[in-house]
Design a protein around this nucleic acid. Structure first.
Lengths: 240, 240
DNA sequence: ATCAAATTTTGAATCTGATTCAATATGCGC
DNA sequence: GCGCATATTGAATCAGATTCAAAATTTGAT
C-alpha cells in the first residue's frame, strides 16, 4: 500500500535537495553561473535524474522561486492574524518583506528574473501556475485585509474594486524591491535606509488612499516603533 | 581630414541598423528567440562584424534598452517644460510612460530583463554606465520638478531628500510597468484599465506626499480630462 | 530465493547557439 | 600598382543545456 507513497516521498525529498543545492550554488556563484550539471553533481545524481524533476533550467528556476514563496506567505499570514488595526497590519506586510529580504537576499532577484519573458515563457505552463498559486495567498491575505478595513470603516473604496486597491501597495513594494536589488541603480541616488523609506512611502500611499487611522508622516519615531513592535510581537522567529 | 569621421559615421549608422534589426526580431519572435546570427544576417553582415559592436549578446540587449530610452526622455522633457502646475506635470510623466508603452510595448519587458542580474552582470561596465546615463535625465527632470514644487510651496519635503521623494513615484511606476507587462500576473485580478488605475494611484500617492493642489480621488472625470489634455497639448506627436 | 518485466538512473553523446580568430578582403598613402 | 593597416568574414570552437540508449535497480509473481 505504502510503497508507491514511500517512493513519492523519496522523490519529493530529492526535489527539495535539488532546489536546496541550486539555492546554495546561486548564493555562492550568482544566478549568472548556475549550471544544471553542477546542481546534479552537488546532490550526487546524474543530470538525467535532475531532468526527471525539471524539464529545463527555466523550470528549475521557477520552481525555486515557487518554493521560496512559502516562507513569505507564512510571514504574511502571521501579520494578517495579528491583533492590530488594519492599517498597522498593512504596514506589517511590508515589514515582513523587509525581514524576508534580509534572510533571503537572493529571492527578489531570482523572482524578478523568473518573471522575465525569457524565463517565464520557457517554463512549462503547469510550473507557472504552481508559482502563481504559491504566491496567491499574498494577494488573498491583502484582499482579506482590505475587506476587513472596509467593513470596519477604516477604508472607503471610492469606487475601486478591492483588487484595484491591492495593486497600489503591490506595485510600490514590487518596484522598491526591484530597484533596491538591481546593482548600481540606487548608487548615485541620495537615499538612506531604503527599507525604512519604503515603510514611509507605503504609509504615505495609505494616507492618500484614505486608509485610517491616517499617520503623521513627520513622526519618524512612530515608524521605527511600529516596525520594531511588529518584529517583536509578530515576526520574532524571522528576525535575523 | 573627414575620412576618419566618415568611417565613424558609417560605423555608428551600422550600429543603429543592428539595433533596429534586433528590435524587429524581438517584436517578431520574442525576446526568448533572439539570436545573434539572425541579427547579423538581417543586416547582411557576418556575425564577427556584429561582435565588433557588441562584445556579447547581453551587451547588445543593454545597448538596445539604452537606445530606446531616448524617446522616453524626450517625452519627459516635453512634460517638464509644459506650462502647468508641478502636480499636473508629475502626472504628465506617468501619461508619457503610458503613451510610450503603447508605442513600444516591448520596452518595459526588455528593460526589466536588461536589469536582471544575469544580463546586467554580463554586460560590460561601460555599457551599463551608458544605460544609466541615458536614463539619468528621467531622474534629473523629476528632481527638478520636485525642487520647483518645493520652491513654489506645492510640496513640503518633511525631512526627506529630493531623491527620497523621487523614489516613491519611481517605484510605483516601475512596479506597475513590471506587473502589467508580465504575462499572467494580472489575469486573475479584477483590474480594469491598468493604466488609468496607475494615474489614479499615483495621484493618491501625491496626495499622501502632500503635493498640492490635492486631488479629489472620487473625481474620475478629472483624471480622464487631465490625461486627455496632456496628450493633446504636450504629447500629441507621440499619440498613436 | 529467483526471474523477467517495469521502472529508474546514468552519463556520454548530441544539439544549440554564442563566441572566436585565422584567413581574406578592403581601403589608404605612396 | 604596391605594401601596410584596418575591417570583414564565416567556418571552427566552445560552453553548457538537453537527450536517450544502455545499465542498474525495484517490483511482484512463482
Amino acid at each position: 500500500m505504502g510503497i508507491r507513497e514511500r517512493r513519492q516521498r523519496e522523490v519529493a525529498g530529492r526535489e527539495q535537495r535539488f532546489l536546496g543545492a541550486a539555492r546554495d550554488l546561486i548564493r555562492q556563484d550568482g544566478l549568472l553561473n548556475l549550471q544544471m550539471s553542477k546542481v546534479a553533481e552537488k546532490c550526487d545524481y546524474a543530470v538525467g535524474t535532475l531532468y526527471q524533476h525539471f524539464v529545463s533550467k527555466e523550470d528549475l528556476l521557477v520552481a525555486l522561486a515557487t518554493d521560496e514563496a512559502q516562507e513569505r506567505v507564512d510571514m504574511f499570514q502571521r501579520v494578517h492574524d495579528w491583533r492590530a488595526s488594519t492599517r498597522e497590519r498593512m504596514i506589517g506586510f511590508a515589514v515582513a518583506d523587509m525581514l524576508y529580504a534580509r534572510r533571503n537576499p537572493g529571492h527578489f532577484r531570482l523572482f524578478q528574473f523568473a518573471l522575465t519573458e525569457v524565463v517565464w515563457g520557457a517554463a512549462p505552463a503547469s510550473r507557472r501556475q504552481a508559482c502563481l498559486d504559491a504566491n496567491a495567498p499574498l494577494r488573498q491575505l491583502t484582499l482579506a485585509l482590505i475587506d476587513e478595513a472596509v467593513r470596519k470603516g477604516d477604508l472607503d473604496l471610492r469606487g475601486l474594486r478591492p483588487d484595484e486597491v491591492c495593486l497600489a501597495p503591490w506595485a510600490m513594494a514590487f518596484g522598491m524591491h526591484s530597484i533596491m536589488h538591481t546593482e548600481g541603480l540606487l548608487e548615485h541616488h541620495e537615499v538612506r535606509e531604503p527599507y525604512h523609506l519604503m515603510l514611509r512611502h507605503l504609509s504615505e500611499l495609505l494616507n492618500g488612499l484614505g486608509w485610517k487611522p491616517l499617520a503623521d508622516p513627520m513622526n519618524h519615531a512612530a515608524f521605527d516603533a511600529l516596525a520594531e513592535r511588529i518584529c517583536k510581537e509578530v515576526l520574532h522567529e524571522y528576525v535575523c
